[in-house]
Design a protein around this nucleic acid. Sequence first.
DNA 1: CTGAAAGCGCTTACAG
DNA 2: CTGAAAGCGCTTACAG
Lengths: 340, 340
Amino acid sequence: MIEVNAPVTMSDVARVAGVSTATVSRVVNGHYGVSARTIAQVRSAIEQLGYESSLVATSLRRSRTNVLGLVAHSFQSYTAEVLKGVMKALSRSGFDLIIYANSDLYGSYSEGWEQRHLARLSGTLTDGCIVVTPWGEMRSRAPVVAIDPVRGSTAPSVMADNLAGATTAVEHLLGLGHRRIGFIAGRDSLASAWSREEGYRAALADAGIPVDPTLIGRGDFNPESAVPLARALLQRADRPSAIFAASDGMALKVLEVARELGLAVPTDLSVVGFDNIPESALTEPGLTTVDQSMFQLGYEAARMLKSLVTGEWDEPSQVVLPTSLVIRDSTAAPTGAARQ
Amino acid sequence: MIEVNAPVTMSDVARVAGVSTATVSRVVNGHYGVSARTIAQVRSAIEQLGYESSLVATSLRRSRTNVLGLVAHSFQSYTAEVLKGVMKALSRSGFDLIIYANSDLYGSYSEGWEQRHLARLSGTLTDGCIVVTPWGEMRSRAPVVAIDPVRGSTAPSVMADNLAGATTAVEHLLGLGHRRIGFIAGRDSLASAWSREEGYRAALADAGIPVDPTLIGRGDFNPESAVPLARALLQRADRPSAIFAASDGMALKVLEVARELGLAVPTDLSVVGFDNIPESALTEPGLTTVDQSMFQLGYEAARMLKSLVTGEWDEPSQVVLPTSLVIRDSTAAPTGAARQ
DNA sequence: CTGAAAGCGCTTACAG
DNA sequence: CTGAAAGCGCTTACAG
């Protein structure tokens, strides 16, 4: 076995097989019009040299690559779950997936970088992209499907029924007897953040409880953003007896802050999240939350992208998936200890 | 704002700015020797057109791309956890990550495809790659780090202390009083599968219990592979009172089969897994397992790859990470009901 | 300080 | 059935 140092290129194969690169290309791609004898020679040279075509060179030359892209800014549980769904949908579809993860922005949010990466990939490498919780409307010549899109977007997207989910969550707290319910909002450019806040407001309105704006903290879905907000909310003399956070990541931080302040959950404080990430079942107490199937989000987005790319598109372009309330141990009726 | 259909290329920018593409390239890459006035013109043209350089074209031309690759055959929890660690290590490192996931092989295993993808990526796109549970020794001109490498590999790799972990797991069962302990092995080309079996054998030997070869099922880490093996083991008249599976995915299937056969866990059967994937805490009963920090595996592999790529390498090239036993509710002392 | 030209590894009309 | 040539979008010596 020959140990190669430089990459084996098509020219190397052509030289060994004694043909032109055009012919090698035809063999590699299974095109018609090559004699059986030549095919055999080329195949043997490929075998001998361990040749693999360069994804980059191929995709630069071809219009169609059969590679789909996924662009995400962080890689926490949410994205990981979405990814499983995407892979499931792409299983045996003939499309491979390239995930582009920007390491410099891990855990922080930076406006517009998806657009940049999208352009860098979709010009050439990918036939289409999924963008997770984008910062803005994406422009691209190739199809793009957003998961949890920007507010007001009319582009293809998949999202949970955030309004219904949030409403149910707050109604759950109301049903337990809570009247002072804090809310920690998500990044307000996203439709999901907006709808979850709407659900909060709607449920309170339905119960005849006026919204106290000082009980609303402006987070951005980044877990860390919830820490100062939760602290502010829970250190007030008239602290809320319950907090609904617009994401599990933020809700988990509320739990931490409560512990730090010596508040028992759910005795002194009830907490509800949104997402149902795996971690929410592992905390002590387990987090009551709204399940949005992230797997399903990914699955549907990939299905949609696939049909957009192949041109078989015939479904509504803005899919909304149902949510359900998962009641665990972070919620209970308010006690006398929790000031009303 | 102009809606563009064709991708904006460097030539477009050059035309608008009234310069050559060479000059545009210099501006884009911040090279010296361009007048302030020209820079301004080019910048403005880039802005106006919304130009982004093509990742593909750039990487075809350059030797260094500052993109690292990760190649994995499936995308289950194990890989997702690894990925989080990788992203953490790459955070603000200047390296982006491209994950190449082969959709046609989701959930199944196919020999040699990593090598193919590795070659396709590393010829050009990536400066180096991480390969998760590879099928063989990888050959590549660019650095490669294996997570959970092939048995006998001397290439850079990161893995858990599988021998110690497996030994501890079986000692735990032994300590509870089990004497007939089944084992479901992993894909035997992997060092991890081998060591976990060694641990099983060593622990039994230490306890003076001869290994019964009929109690060993030959799985391949694919959860489905455990189903017929567990069924065979549990339908025997002299079934084992405990089963140690070489991965959580397989252990979870053992739990399913036990339920299907009407066997209560841990009353009738104790089950231990290996990995500690998030799901293992969510089953009923929770799975006792050996924790190998998949996050840490990913983190260390990425760190190693980074230093290999930048040439700062000065650490041992085969990292072994400690494991720990996580006792949940799937293990207990054998009862009379479980035949010995 | 700037441009013309070559070339990265491929594919695809166009000839023959 | 096969090859020479052009070109995908860039970068980098080489001239000037």
